[in-house]
Design a protein around this nucleic acid. Structure first.
Lengths: 162, 162
DNA sequence: ATAATTGCAAAGGGTTTGCACGAAG
DNA sequence: CTTCGTGCAAACCCTTTGCAATTAT
């Protein structure tokens, strides 16, 4: 289950630990490489899949279906509310939903019931940044602050690759 | 918004109407072609995306991230519990979750909050069919009754393509 | 020593796009 | 007529796999 402790796997976990947001395999790869960590894209994919299997990460899918990973808190899996503009995510209290899922399972006779619950929206900051909602007329131009960190990695993300 | 009423679009909607389960674009395409409806795969993709935009279908993603479509009931969107073995799905009562999502939105200052809620499990039939769970030792062989309909389309699905 | 891990390059596979033809309004 | 829709083939792009070299234990 555990597997060997390699430089690469440590780097992936460390990168994840430094990010408070969900990251794709490609993003993590870019981050690592930019941070002078020699690693192959394939290895990143494999490390993440392993982490997923071992329950080390929470996973959501982007609009395209691609997987986004975030280190799972020590106290178990969480659900998140993610900003569609900037990509920042925060865990939300989801007891109600967990219970609901349990009730459904019991009521339907289904076993091994698993649930996927994802919330997305526009955070206050992004709403403000885009002129309060709809005016100005340049809808499609919302600069995704998630990528505002830049292709080169400034801001909070810096700590990911370090 | 509506678009033109073409033979192909009618066929796609009709195929969906005949299916009680979630179907992928490829599946619908296969169904239509097998049912003697001349149509291009591309067209199926486009028709489904349009339906999705117009809110005509509910969408979930399969394990690979691919989209699965199901005609949305007239009274609004629903959430579903789907069997991981046979693929059959049933709408579940999700008021609790809708309310929860609303509360989260209010509490966090996020706007335009959208939610994705999917439940999967193993239905009673499939559980029985696979020897009650784990014995017998041939784990990986669960015959997906979803595909039991066969590559050639027997059973309830027949009505899809008709 | 020995089996797991890495990483490149190539394969894979579902979805989208370019573009000329055809059909709807 | 004029615009929108269609469908083929090619392009995309993320992800996985084959396989020889490398590394942890």
């Amino acid at each position: 289950m555990g597997g060997r402790t390699t430089r690469q796997r440590k780097a992936v976990t460390r990168a994840l630990a430094g990010c408070q947001d969900f990251m794709s395999a490609q993003e993590l790869y870019a981050l690592l490489v930019a941070g002078d960590h020699a690693i192959g894209l394939t290895t990143v994919y494999r490390a993440l899949r392993e982490l997923e299997t071992d329950g080390g990460v929470d996973v959501v899918r982007d609009e395209t279906g691609g997987r986004l990973y975030r280190l799972r808190p020590a106290d178990g899996h969480r659900h998140y509310l993610m900003c569609r503009d900037c990509g920042r995510s925060r865990p939300v209290d989801s007891e109600v939903v967990e219970e609901w899922a349990g009730r459904i399972a019991a009521a339907t006779g289904f076993t091994a019931v698993e649930h996927t619950v994802e919330l997305t929206g526009v955070c206050a900051d992004c709403l403000a940044r885009t002129d309060g909602g709809r005016p100005s007329g340049h809808e499609g131009e919302k600069p995704p602050c998630r990528w505002d960190r830049g292709p080169g990695l400034q801001g909070p993300v810096h700590s990911c690759a370090s």
